[in-house]
């Protein structure tokens, strides 16, 4: 089954770059469940714009440093 969303993300790479931050730590900082972080990382859930900004702020990068949206058909 294909991924439900076309939004891509670099959260996994950013977590490891941020001192191997765990999914639970990121979840705690955002006030969400660990399962939501897993779903976002796996492309099973597109977070709200607000949560997307919060994630980017945790890693200290701009929004498009975390999320991407590929061109049509890719």
């Amino acid at each position: 089954m294909g991924k439900p969303t076309r939004v891509t993300n670099q959260i996994r790479a950013l977590r490891f770059a941020a001192g191997e931050m765990t999914q639970a730590e990121l979840a705690d900082r955002l006030g969400v469940t660990r399962q939501t972080i897993i779903a976002v990382e796996q492309g099973k859930y597109s977070p709200s714009l607000e949560m997307a900004f919060q994630i980017a702020r945790v890693f200290g990068v701009p929004l498009d440093g975390v999320f991407g949206y590929p061109e049509d058909g890719r």
Binding site: A24, D28, G31, V32, T33, T36, A39, P47, S48, M51
Partner: peptide, 15 residues
């Protein structure tokens, strides 16, 4: 080693 209230009370936007 986690707070029980974090597990039970935490209902996020996805939920």
């Amino acid at each position: 080693g986690r707070k029980p209230e974090d597990e039970i009370d935490r209902k996020d936007e996805r939920d």
